[in-house]
Simulated assay, not measured.
Amino acid sequence: MSSSDIFIGETIGTAILILLGGGVCAAVTLKASKARNAGWLAITFGWGFAVLTAVYTSAPLSGAHLNPAVTLALAIKSGDWSNVPVYWAGQLLGAAIGATLVWVAYYGQFHAHLTDKEIVGGPGAQATAAKAVEAQEKGAGPVLGIFSTGPEIRNVVQNLATEIIGTIVLVLAVLTQGLNDSGKGLGTLGALITALVVVSIGLSLGGPTGYAINPARDLGPRLVHALLPLPNKGGSDWRYAWIPVVGPLIGGAIAAGIYNVAFA
């Protein structure tokens, strides 16, 4: 596969992943959404189906890594690092595009949610300049969870360990289940298995941090949250942002090491 195919495939696939995954978070979170308060089961299955759709869509072009941790693990496994930057660039761009499309699809709901006094407080619909500055200096704003992850309890060691452990499970599933004929990504059966693994990770390990298990999935939408003209959106929690990037990369590398020792 060519570099252009890889970049296009990863951009499209990751955009679909974040559009559908972020979309279910928006559906469950925002006012005037028919799915509001549908709960954690809806989110975990929504993300699983998002993975399934994205993989089936992008696999013919790029092998459907859709995750820098997966790309890193496959590079360690094969020793071929030549296309890693292309994969990562497509994944980050696709994640940003997908998050932007979530905002477009739920534009009215974002506005209704972020101008509701019960949610953002204050006497009016718009925050004052002083309140906006204060909100940006705080951690997560009221809709950041639609775009990126955050911990329920802030403990750096635990949060990092949770992301590492979840990513090890994910990447081992990718490495051991149904790589396609090129050896570069998931085959048809592997896509289904991996989607179910993502659901399992969400149900079992998602409680502490929201299970990023994918640096692009967290960083790209977090950047979009920081840039979008959302009223009263609050901060993007950059103090935490390194954990869902570094943790999954460490987890991916460990999973590749386990694979090379135990399975290769």
Rank of each mutant, 00 (worst) to 15 (best):
S3G: 15
S4C: 10
I6D: 06
G9N: 06
T11N: 07
I12P: 07
G13I: 05
T14H: 11
I16N: 06
I16F: 10
L17Y: 11
L19S: 06
A27Q: 14
V28I: 15
A32W: 06
S33W: 08
A35W: 12
R36W: 00
W40L: 14
L41M: 12
A42P: 02
F45E: 01
W47F: 13
G48I: 04
F49G: 13
L52M: 14
A54H: 09
S58L: 08
A59S: 13
P60H: 02
P60A: 01
L61P: 04
G63N: 08
H65D: 12
H65W: 04
V70S: 05
A73G: 03
L74I: 15
A75K: 06
D80E: 11
P85G: 09
Q91S: 00
G94A: 04
A96D: 07
I97N: 00
A105E: 00
G108S: 14
H111M: 14
T115Y: 07
D116P: 10
G121S: 01
G124F: 06
A125N: 13
A127E: 08
A129N: 12
A132T: 14
A135H: 08
E137C: 05
A140W: 01
A140S: 15
G141S: 04
G145F: 10
F147N: 10
F147Q: 05
S148Y: 12
I153P: 01
V156Q: 09
Q158C: 05
L160W: 11
T162P: 00
I164W: 02
V169Y: 13
V171M: 07
V171W: 04
V174Q: 02
T176M: 12
N180C: 00
D181E: 14
D181F: 07
D181G: 13
S182M: 10
S182G: 08
K184F: 09
G185V: 05
L186S: 15
G187K: 08
G187M: 11
G190A: 09
A191T: 03
A191P: 05
L192R: 06
L192D: 03
V198W: 07
V198Q: 05
S200R: 00
S200H: 08
I201G: 00
S204N: 13
G206K: 05
G207W: 14
P208C: 04
T209N: 02
G210L: 12
A216S: 14
R217I: 09
D218Y: 03
D218N: 11
D218K: 05
L223V: 15
L230D: 03
L230C: 01
N232W: 00
N232M: 01
K233S: 06
D237R: 01
D237F: 13
R239Y: 01
R239S: 01
A241F: 03
V245P: 00
V245A: 10
V245C: 09
V246E: 01
A256M: 05
G257F: 03
N260I: 02
N260K: 15
V261R: 08
F263V: 15
